[in-house]
Amino acid sequence: MYSPTPSDWREANRKRWDERVPLHLASDYYDLEAFRSGKDPLRDFELAEVGDVTGRSLLHLQCHIGLDTLSWCRHGASRVVGLDFSEPAVDAARDLAAELGLTADQASFVAADVYDAADAVPDTSYDIVYTGVGALCWLPDIQRWAETVAALVAPGGFLYLAEFHPLADILDDETGSRIEYDYFARDAWIEETPGGYADTTTPTVHNRKVEWQHPVGEVITALASAGLRVDFLHEHDTTLFERFGSLELRDGAYQFPVDRPRIPLMYSLKASRAVA
């Protein structure tokens, strides 16, 4: 339900994510054994749109257990830094980096709130600031996020964001064919939801979550007003999980049946900082 932002939103969300870290580490969804063996969790469109990262520094905001972060290191980034507000998630990411034989100069992780990133990360700027899917919904103030990001992008560098499309948030869960919610809602969405996307069966205690919906126009405007130039905005008709009961798994991604009109389920964008 939509409600005013509760004062404990950050703590409620942190407890939820802390509890789910061990579930995610053991889950088939993240498949850590395959990752250790070299499986790449990054999406093909991300690799194509970000391009060659060889020799570049990369900061991953809201990195969770660090699989995407460490994958950019495998793709040649000279230094990756991951930041997340969940200390258990950061501990897990550090353990994985050590297992892969990476030094702290190659891959490091910081436990901090994303809004405090500029003061928490080890370097003042990065060639690439990356934010993966399912991150922005946990933040109430997208303008503050954009200003934080812009402060961390080095001159000549860029932000790359891949995210679930907010249009999908307004549709019914069963079929994804009916509009049930307000696309322009600004209040928090507060819900008690056990389990999660990676484990739907293990009982959980911290089930309350507080999220926000950010229309694409709001995200673009926030980045532009923070001083970044938007180079592209791409919309995608696939998603990473069965968001609606009517979706089908085809070619490794969830899509609507071929006889249904398509809508955007994800989007990606690149926003650059001019060379000083």
Rank of each mutant, 00 (worst) to 15 (best):
V90R: 09
G66K: 10
R79H: 13
A107T: 04
D105G: 12
A112M: 05
D84E: 07
L96P: 00
R79L: 10
A77H: 09
W72E: 15
S71C: 14
T103Y: 03
W72I: 10
G76N: 11
A104W: 00
A89T: 09
G66M: 10
V80A: 02
A107Q: 02
D105E: 15
G82D: 13
C73W: 07
R74I: 09
D84N: 10
G82S: 12
A77S: 13
A111Q: 06
D84M: 08
A107Y: 01
D91R: 14
L70P: 02
Q106P: 00
S86C: 11
S71K: 09
H75F: 05
A93F: 07
L102P: 00
R79N: 07
Q106C: 03
V110M: 07
P88W: 02
L83M: 08
R74C: 05
S78H: 07
D113C: 05
S71G: 08
L67N: 14
A92P: 02
D91H: 04
F85W: 10
A77Q: 10
D84F: 03
A112W: 05
S108D: 12
E87F: 06
S108P: 01
G66T: 14
G82V: 10
A98W: 01
S86V: 01
D91M: 08
V80E: 04
D113W: 00
T103S: 15
V110P: 06
L96I: 15
E87Q: 15
A93P: 05
A89P: 00
P88A: 12
A97F: 11
